[in-house]
Simulated assay, not measured.
Amino acid sequence: MSHPIPDPTIVFVHGAWHGPWAWDQLRRYLPAFDTIAVDLPGSGSDPDRLGGLQDDADLLRDTVRGIDGPVVVVAHSYGGAVATEALTDCPNVQQVIYLTAFAPDAGESVHQLVGGQLPNWVTITDDNASEVRHPIRVFYGDCSPRLARWAARQLTKQSLSSIQGQVTDPAWRYLPATYIICTRDRAIHPAAQAVFSARCDEVHRLRADHSPMLSQPDALADLLRTVIACDAPGPYRPAHRG
């Protein structure tokens, strides 16, 4: 007797300078799914407690392994590097979805992927961390002014070690990987997103800024439901992809 395939738990991975709060609106549009938004140690207000890429990857890996049943991971921006490093040995991951995110290959870091020089809207602080200048323009161009101001106030510091950490064995070589290109993004240029998307099995486009989970949560939720439903019957672990 066959058993119905359970809906996966969706695990959301935020980008640099952000936190779990970034996913709150989107999660309300996905009531049929159990959802978890991780809180990466690479971001935070206390520079003495900030972690690196491996700390972020360890937290995500432990979270996913602790879930009983299939998991879909949705990773945004820097969170794509975290998912890429964390998920290779997580057999219950059904799919990883890169949302305008970095998808490094082995030996690559986010710092390398932006050309070895941080964008001019990133400031390095005296405590060996980083902060964002002009976040409304860079991250929240399609948000209402009120929402954009609120989101900008939530931003924290990001450790340099997280941005400089190199991926060892990228998960997108093993797992079903989908990329969502945001065509109005001012933080990660769509041309760069296209390069990362070539490492994935499936590509979708959304006419949105860098933060569609805030600016277009309804449209993003519709797209995620479609992407996840299409992949649901597949195996957890496909053959290695070169």
Score class of each variant (00 low, 15 high):
S130R: 03
N128S: 14
P176V: 15
I180H: 02
G165C: 10
Q112W: 05
L175H: 03
V110K: 01
S162W: 01
H111G: 08
N92S: 14
D169A: 09
S159D: 05
Q164G: 13
A103V: 01
R146C: 07
L99I: 08
D105V: 01
Y98I: 03
A192E: 13
A192I: 14
R146S: 10
C143F: 02
A129F: 02
Q154C: 03
N92T: 12
L155D: 06
Q166T: 04
P104G: 03
S161R: 08
A187R: 09
T100Y: 12
E131A: 14
G107Y: 14
A101G: 03
T123L: 12
Y140S: 01
Q158H: 09
R153Q: 11
Q158T: 11
R149K: 09
W172Q: 04
L113V: 10
S161T: 09
L118H: 08
I188E: 01
I97R: 08
A148C: 12
A191K: 15
R184V: 15
H111I: 13
D105R: 04
A151S: 05
G116W: 15
P176C: 15
T178H: 12
Q95P: 00
L113H: 11
A177T: 00
H111A: 11
K157Y: 06
A187Q: 09
W121Y: 15
D169M: 08
I163G: 02
D142V: 11
V122L: 06
V114H: 11
V96N: 03
R146W: 12
R137N: 10
L118M: 15
D127A: 10
A106F: 11
Q164L: 13
W150E: 04
E108R: 04
A152K: 02
T183D: 07
P145Q: 01
P190N: 10
L118Y: 15
A151C: 07
V132C: 06
H134I: 15
P190K: 11
P91Y: 13
Q166V: 00
D185H: 05
I181P: 00
N92Y: 14
Q158I: 06
P145M: 01
T183S: 13
L160Y: 01
R173P: 02
H111C: 10
L118K: 04
S161W: 05
P104K: 03
C90M: 05
I124P: 00
T178Y: 14
G116S: 10
R149C: 07
W150K: 02
W172M: 07
A148N: 10
I124G: 09
T123A: 15
